[in-house]
Amino acid sequence: MAERIEQRFNGHGANEIYERLVDQLGIVAKEYGLKLDAAPATRAGRVHRKGMVDVKFAVVEELLTADLDFGMLIPKSIRERVRTELEQRLGSLFA
Rank of each mutant, 00 (worst) to 15 (best):
E16W: 02
P40W: 06
L36K: 04
K56P: 00
E16F: 04
I27C: 00
R20A: 10
I17A: 05
N10L: 12
A44Q: 14
D23K: 14
A44S: 15
F9G: 00
E19I: 10
V47G: 03
R49G: 07
R43V: 07
L34V: 08
G26Y: 03
Q7W: 00
E19W: 01
M52Q: 12
V55M: 15
G33H: 09
F57S: 06
R8I: 14
H48F: 14
K50C: 01
H48V: 12
A14E: 14
Q24P: 00
D37F: 04
H48G: 05
A44H: 03
V28H: 09
T42P: 00
T42R: 12
V55K: 02
I17M: 04
A39M: 08
F57A: 06
I17K: 05
L34H: 11
D37P: 01
A44I: 02
N10T: 12
V53A: 14
A29K: 08
R20K: 15
I17E: 02
G51Y: 01
E16V: 09
L25M: 12
G11W: 04
E6K: 09
N10D: 11
A14V: 03
G11V: 10
L21A: 09
L34M: 08
L25D: 02
D37S: 09
Y32F: 15
I27L: 14
